[in-house]
């Protein structure tokens, strides 16, 4: 499904980091969402589902991993180790460096799942080797809630809901 770009051993722009730390389990999914395209390895994690778009510059405190923009629908939430669902990308050229920076600081999410993204988010996620996907056949906001446990498989182009919160 869709185009897939894999981080390959000799393709890394940044000196390659040690292997994936996804902790993937073998559970059977409760439901599946098909994705348009994606990058990165299979990961699992707790969902953080946003009604609002996202930019690391506009919305995120890049030292704590908390969303700090006053009035953001996820104000106060942490993106660390979450599978983050955002309908859109906001702005912003900063993501290109910022995702690599937050990964080095240990506050990166497990994956970014966008309805519509922009190239900066993709360029940043690939540099940081954070899985990223774009497009979905079913709006996650209707079927996945913050706290649910999900698996992201960018190569197969699917999100699987494994456990309800």
């Amino acid at each position: 499904m869709g185009q897939t770009a894999q981080p390959g051993g000799d393709a890394c722009y940044v000196t390659c980091r040690s292997g994936a730390e996804s902790g993937v389990t073998g559970s059977t999914p409760i439901l599946t969402i098909a994705l348009q395209r994606g990058f990165g390895p299979v990961v699992e994690g707790e969902a953080l589902v946003s009604e609002e778009g996202f930019s690391p510059r506009y919305d995120l405190d890049r030292w704590s991993g908390l969303i700090t923009k006053p009035g953001h629908k996820l104000e106060g939430a942490s993106i660390k180790d979450r599978v983050c669902f955002f309908p859109t990308a906001k702005g912003g050229i900063a993501a290109g460096w910022a995702f690599n920076d937050i990964r080095a600081k240990g506050i990166a999410p497990k994956a970014f799942i966008f309805g519509v993204t922009n190239p900066v988010m993709v360029q940043g996620a690939i540099l940081a080797e954070i899985p990223i996907t774009e497009g979905w056949d079913q709006d996650p906001r209707e079927v996945i809630r913050t706290g649910d446990w999900v698996r992201v498989d960018p190569e197969r182009g699917v999100i699987e809901l494994l456990r309800r919160a």
Binding site: A5, D10, A11, Y13, P119, V122, L127
Partner: peptide, 13 residues
């Protein structure tokens, strides 16, 4: 490294 990165971004799109 630069062109490998660009190819990954290009493949995504």
């Amino acid at each position: 490294r630069a062109i490998a990165y660009q190819m990954q971004v290009g493949r995504f799109f």
